[in-house]
């Protein structure tokens, strides 16, 4: 693996291999010394053109736990606000000697450009690009589902036969896209639930079922219900009448939480709009995996950085 740009081009074996390495990385968190010397001397740059709390912190923790040096870059307060291009930024990072660049960008495809343009030899990790993909989020979601299902015996398993319902703003969600590709690759069956205005054009070609009514979807007792954040920062048109109406029709409130099966789990990639797409009761219930997802994110990102940065670097 040279870069991690999307989950769509991961094979089932590759995906399971990443999750299995993440299991080994998760064991490190239980040790007395929570640090591995594996990436000593490597430099990881977090290149964030969009705001982020957990993804950036998670990548930083992952890189540091593997003993890599971390440079954090956020577009605010950098030369980007003076008009520096992505090319110049990339070449600057190459000159500094970055071995891996973790990039979040508002434009879909920015990581692909960085990986293919020849400006920089480093491994590129997509940490969310526009409305395209967020592969490490999908990997940590798959890891979390797998651990809830199989516990410590998760290694080697896919997600065959698992039913996953993804609810909310599919249109703007890179998390949903990455999850659709990854979860179906791993054998899960995915149902999307959203108002018609928040579904992308071409969704009928995705390997998923689509429903418009949340109660109808919940009646099918999915193993996993994944709530998405309403991304008001990307909404430049009226997609639903108002927040209260959205919450009543597509929000996971306490009543709907009660109707879930006892073993169903509730996921949310964060940050949550409590009271909008998810109630506080649902977010804090024992069925919620929100904090597990954050903890698992570090293990999964350690696995990705390890797989990208160890081994011989073949110059292309």
């Amino acid at each position: 693996m040279r870069h991690l740009l999307s989950t769509r081009d991961l094979s089932r074996d590759q995906a399971i291999a990443i999750l299995d390495v993440a299991e080994d990385m998760a064991d490190v968190a239980d040790r007395e010394v929570k640090k591995l010397p594996t990436l000593r001397g490597k430099t990881v740059v977090n290149l964030f053109f969009e705001d982020s709390t957990r993804t950036r912190i998670s990548f930083e923790a992952a890189a540091k736990r593997l003993s890599a040096d971390v440079i954090n870059f956020s577009a605010k307060g950098s030369s980007v606000s003076k008009g520096e291009s992505l090319k110049d930024t990339a070449q600057t990072l190459a000159a500094i000697g970055a071995d891996a660049v973790v990039i979040r960008h508002g434009s879909s495809g920015a990581p692909l450009v960085l990986a293919n343009a020849g400006w920089i030899e480093a491994a590129i990790v997509n940490a969310g690009d526009g409305t395209h993909e967020h592969p490490t989020q999908a990997l940590l979601d798959a890891f979390t589902i797998r651990r809830r299902l199989h516990g410590p015996a998760s290694r080697g398993h896919g997600l065959d036969g698992v039913t996953v319902t993804i609810v909310g703003d599919i249109l703007h969600s890179r998390v949903a896209r990455s999850n659709v590709w990854l979860l179906t690759t791993l054998g899960a069956s995915v149902t999307l639930v959203a108002p018609a205005t928040l579904l992308p054009i071409g969704v009928d070609e995705w390997p998923v079922a689509v429903l418009f009514d949340l109660d109808e979807a919940l009646a099918r007792q999915a193993d996993v219900v994944m709530m998405l954040r309403i991304q008001s920062e990307r909404m430049h048109a009226a997609f639903f009448p108002n927040a209260r109406e959205y919450s009543r029709q597509w929000g996971l409130d306490d009543g709907r939480l009660d109707r879930l099966g006892p073993d169903s789990i509730v996921m949310h990639p964060g940050p949550m709009n409590r009271g909008l797409e998810i109630s506080a009761g649902a977010a804090d219930s024992p069925q919620s995996t929100v904090l597990e997802q954050v903890a698992n994110g570090v293990s999964v990102r350690m696995a990705v950085l390890y797989l990208l940065l160890s081994g011989e670097r073949t110059l292309s």
Binding site: D24, D27, P37, T38, G311
Partner: peptide
């Protein structure tokens, strides 16, 4: 498992660690 502590990780193809 010693994979993550090896000093030759950059000289060989990537190895998958085993459980400790």
């Amino acid at each position: 498992d010693v994979t993550l502590y090896r000093d030759d990780l950059g000289r060989n193809p990537t190895r998958a660690p085993s459980p400790t």
